[in-house]
Design a binder for these strands. Structure first.
Lengths: 134, 134
DNA sequence: TCTTGACTTCAAGTATACTTGAAGTGTTAG
DNA sequence: CTAACACTTCAAGTATACTTGAAGTCAAGA
């Protein structure tokens, strides 16, 4: 099993050490071992956990729910239905977010086209397009 | 031009009135007119603005940048390049978010499959699958 | 050995985006 | 006409997710 210092962790994930200590403090991390001089030693388990946290974070799962998730995962026999429900709900939520995100992207691209047309019109002195033209 | 009370606005967008007042306070809204008794009157311009704010918000554009955007849009001849840059950057950012979101969705779907396999194994008393099986 | 820098704890501070409360004015149904 | 409720302002409070600072310990090179 590989081990990592806090420096290696922060460099691997490009996050401040304070964030790693914070995640530990709020109980998002499995127990972190220490050297004889009290410095943190992380393992591959922490690497996996941090990947999961980042995935959940990017997809908008609040930390309180991540906390529940990791608790369920540590006691699967009692919480198999809870964890499945949570993940299926989150899956639906992400799909919903992606659909909205696609629509929002369409709107932004429409704006890009519109303002580029205006720029062209400004440079050539032709009349301004209206927004509906896009 | 249609007009709307604060009640109509909050029902149309399903947001609290306080949010509408807040957006106005921080300058995200065009001037809001009042009745003789000082109550706010919104117009279609505010409807459009609120749609834009929601689109920007969902795609992670901070309010400070929305503020700049609306300022640029009100003075296009000076800021046509700024507004195009901002929208093209935001477009790239959204595309990047969508790619990550798709990967994150894959991970979540993998978890859903994995925990469902475990549930089946639990019910049938067969050995637990390992995570790599998914 | 000294000094520079990294680590530690713990408490307090910050950023973003609102939300709530108090105190007052206006509006409407019975 | 009064009760109940919606609106107003302004200041202060809240939630989430960290970040920073102070004070101290530890480590490694000149």
């Amino acid at each position: 099993m590989n081990t990592y210092t806090i420096k290696e962790m922060r460099e691997k994930f490009d996050i401040p050490s304070s964030t790693l200590r914070y995640y530990e403090e709020i109980g998002l991390f499995p127990e972190v071992m220490r050297t004889e001089t009290n410095q943190r030693i992380y393992t591959d388990e922490h690497i996996d956990r941090l990947h999961a946290i980042n995935c959940f974070k990017r997809t908008g799962l609040p930390m309180a729910k991540m906390h529940d998730f990791f608790e369920y995962a540590e006691n699967l026999p009692c919480h198999i239905d809870d964890i499945i429900d949570m993940m299926e709900d989150h899956e639906k939520d992400i799909i919903c977010q992606m659909e909205k995100m696609q629509q929002d992207l369409d709107h932004i691209q429409q704006k890009v086209r519109y303002y580029n047309k205006i720029k062209t019109a400004m440079e050539q002195g032709t009349p301004w397009p209206c927004f509906e033209d896009c």
